[in-house]
Design a protein around this nucleic acid. Structure first.
Length: 324
DNA sequence: CATCAGGGCCCTG
DNA sequence: CAGGGCCCTGAT
């Protein structure tokens, strides 16, 4: 519990993302739930990445204000091999969609009344997720049926007990436990962390990873959105809400929007129609017509821009929908 | 103090 | 396919 590891700098690699690209838009998501798994500080992102059963510290930065290169500094207890470096680089490229092709979207909608400003500020932003599939599902599990505050509390309790604290570059972030670690933990012990019925889901999801019934590798190799969706829905404790986040953020389907949760529905409704009451069904139809194959990316640009603005100015109707 | 719904999902009818 | 129940907490 509260296993701590001090890591030292071992290597820096660089990748060149496809254009157009926005570093901050891609690596910092104001709308994402805050956790000790990721730290964005002074234009740099700190997180753990697990490769070959080991957790490495990773620091990601834009190499210079105008260069489009992304630097990845890797921290570890001892020197690392080229294959580890490659694997971590690949993981960053995949999780942050650095090889994605969104040029068509920017071209087509830079004049769109709702997208012009977000594109001006964030043009080149990618849908991205800091976590592995397993990590994402753990987060999604504590997000269920809870307010953000309680979610943070549950995640902190879990990380304190089962996570690995990594110290590198003068910062601290946690690496999530592995599915195998969770196999050794009893449901009762988990429940003692006050996470309620979610204990069962965590156990079952972990087990399906250990038995290879679920494999991130395999899912990533699938081409069709529908196939991935069906495979994800088979996982116990994973429903339409988590899957729709995953299809967009982790699997980068820019049109992955056929489901709107009530709280998101209200926010999108307000942005599109100036009221909170338009039905999700109507919204989905209009969004399809307006942005077609880019519809979820469009919503993401508008959404992140809104959350970013929230830091600058007070948006009362939004505060009502975000219960911290 | 009691009641209730929450940034879902499963299960039942 | 609609709706109750789930753990626990903070808001009322």
């Amino acid at each position: 519990m509260d296993e701590v590891k001090q890591l030292a700098k071992q290597a820096t690699v660089y990748v060149v993302p496809t254009k157009p690209f926005s570093f901050e838009g891609t690596f910092f998501k104001p709308s994402h739930f805050p956790s000790k798994l990721v730290l964005y500080d002074n234009g740099r992102l700190y997180q753990a990445i697990e490769v070959g059963g080991h957790a490495f510290g990773v620091e990601i930065f834009g190499s210079s204000p105008n260069s489009q290169k992304v630097g990845i500094t890797i921290y570890a207890p001892k020197a690392i091999s080229d294959s580890i470096k490659k694997a971590i680089e690949r993981e960053v490229v995949t999780r942050y969609d650095l090889a994605g092709d969104i040029g068509g979207f920017i071209e087509e909608y830079r004049g769109d009344s709702l997208l012009a400003e977000p594109i001006q500020r964030w043009g080149g932003m990618r849908p991205s997720v800091a976590y592995s599939l397993y990590g994402f599902l753990m987060v999604a599990t504590v997000l269920q049926n809870a307010t953000v505050k309680r979610t943070v509390q549950m995640m902190d309790a879990l990380l304190k007990q089962y996570g690995k604290k990594l110290i590198f570059a003068g910062r601290e972030v946690y690496a999530i436990w592995s599915p195998e670690d969770m196999e050794k933990v009893s449901e009762t012990d988990l429940r003692d962390l006050r996470i309620g019925y979610r204990a069962k889901n965590i156990k079952r999801i972990s087990h399906s990873f250990v038995t290879k019934q679920v494999s991130e590798e395999l899912l990533r190799s699938m081409r069709r959105k529908q196939d991935i969706k069906e495979a994800l829905l088979e996982i116990y404790g994973v429903g339409p809400q988590s899957v729709s986040y995953l299809l967009f953020e982790a699997f980068h389907f820019y049109d992955a929007l056929d489901h709107l949760s009530p709280w998101e529905g209200k926010i999108v409704s307000m942005l599109l129609y100036g009221n909170k009451t338009t039905s999700p069904k109507r919204i989905l139809k209009d969004v399809e017509k307006r942005w077609g194959k880019w519809k979820m990316l469009a919503i993401h640009y508008i959404f992140e821009d809104l959350f970013w603005r929230r830091k600058e100015e007070c948006i009362p109707w939004l505060e009502e929908e975000i219960r911290m």
